[in-house]
Amino acid sequence: MTLTLDLSGRVALVTGGARGIGRGVSAVLVEAGARVITCGRSDAEPAPGTEHRVCDVRDGDEVAALVEAIVASHGRLDVLVNNAGGAPYALAEDSSRRLDDKILGLNLEAVLAVAKAAHAVMRTQSDGGAIVNISSVSAVRPSPGTATYGAAKAGVDSLTRSLAVEWGPQVRVNSIDVGLCRTEQTDDHYGGDAAVAAIEATIPLGRMAEPQEIGQVVAFLASDLAGYVSGANLACHGGGEPPVFLHITKEKS
Rank of each mutant, 00 (worst) to 15 (best):
V28G: 11
Y228F: 15
D127L: 09
S158C: 06
G105K: 02
M208Y: 15
P204Q: 02
Y89P: 00
L108N: 11
G40I: 10
C181I: 07
A147Y: 12
I131Q: 04
T183H: 14
G192S: 03
G240V: 07
P142E: 05
A209F: 01
I70V: 10
I103Y: 07
T38M: 00
G128C: 01
S253V: 14
G49L: 07
D59K: 05
G85Y: 10
R172Y: 03
R23S: 15
Y149A: 11
R41Y: 05
A194L: 03
G215E: 06
A195T: 02
K250E: 15
G9E: 08
A232R: 03
S158T: 14
G191N: 05
S143W: 10
D127V: 06
N82W: 04
R123T: 13
E45T: 13
L205Q: 12
V63T: 13
D101T: 05
G129I: 14
P144F: 12
A222Q: 02
M208K: 12
S126G: 13
G20Y: 07
A195G: 05
H74C: 01
A87E: 00
K250A: 12
A130N: 12
N174I: 03
L5N: 14
G16N: 04
A90Q: 13
G168D: 11
L225W: 09
A195V: 01
A130G: 10
P46K: 07
V218Q: 07
A117I: 13
G75P: 03
P142M: 04
S162W: 08
Q185V: 01
S135T: 13
S138K: 02
A92Y: 15
A65Q: 11
V25E: 15
T4C: 06
I134N: 12
T38Y: 04
P88E: 01
A201R: 14
T15Q: 06
A12E: 11
H189R: 02
D187I: 00
G22D: 10
A113I: 00
H119R: 10
R172H: 01
V67M: 05
S175W: 09
Y228P: 00
I131E: 05
P48I: 05
L159E: 11
R98C: 05
D6L: 02
D6Y: 04
T202S: 14
L221E: 13
S95L: 09
V14K: 08
A90W: 02
G105A: 06
H237D: 15
S158F: 07
H74F: 13
R58H: 06
G191T: 09
R10L: 01
E166M: 00
P142V: 01
A44E: 13
L91V: 06
D157F: 11
S135P: 13
N83V: 04
I70L: 00
A110W: 05
V114D: 09
M1F: 05
L246W: 14
V71W: 09
V244Y: 02
V132F: 08
